[in-house]
Write a protein that binds this DNA or RNA. Structure first.
Lengths: 109, 109
DNA sequence: TTGATGCGTAGGATAATTCCTACGTATAGT
DNA sequence: ACTATACGTAGGAATTATCCTACGCATCAA
């Protein structure tokens, strides 16, 4: 629920890259993620922990492996957070449209 | 353009609150924003600077005042960043639907 | 021109983040 | 039982973030 954790988790490029990998390549064990990362395996583990605390990732243990999978629900909260700004954005656009219309009126004279 | 600056700017609750104020109350001078903030005025100034560097805010100088206004365009980039995750989210939902359908089939027997 | 107002910048203390290596724990295979 | 594998955690160094007070620079008002 805490938006703070969510935004903080997304602030790191490394964590966003992890999310992207899980999104495009599906659930994976931590080690496989770390292999293609320019970062030590333990550091990747910590990033995964941050993502887990933010609810962006969930783990299922399979033997000694831990598969991580993307949990997109918090990102939909982010979309909700964004909504009132979209409205603002559109207002700005329509204001711009109005301005352009005025300029056309000027030209028409 | 750099998504890093954008995400980093949004990581701070104080900065998100500033954005909300500008969104809900319109453009304002820095001092008026700081008045209702549990934070020193110079600190608010720095937060505004971070927001400006991220393109989320623009200033227009009016005499000795500086009016800050929200620039929502970068947030629309954020929405674009979000899009491929929405697809993932829907896939999960349809997978859940399929599962529920299966369970109904089971019950129907 | 003088004094007050609106804001930003400088410098610094403290806390948080980010990365590492070393180590511990649990499972799998032999 | 013993070794190798897949991880996480501990502890610490280096960087960055976050806040403050003190100060400087314009602008306005008289």
């Amino acid at each position: 629920m805490s938006a703070d954790h969510l935004f903080a988790a997304l602030a790191s490029p490394a964590r966003r890259e992890l999310l992207r990998m899980l999104r495009d390549e599906g659930a994976q064990p931590a080690g496989r993620l770390a292999e293609r990362f320019d970062m030590s395996r333990p550091s990747v583990s910590e990033h995964l922990k941050v993502l887990k605390d933010a609810g962006l990732v969930a783990e299922t243990r399979k033997g000694r492996e831990r598969h991580y999978r993307l949990e997109a629900a918090p990102l939909m909260e982010l979309r909700d957070w964004l909504t009132p700004y979209e409205r603002f954005w559109r207002e700005r656009l329509t204001a711009l449209d109005a301005l352009l219309d005025d300029m056309e009126d000027q030209d028409a004279r």
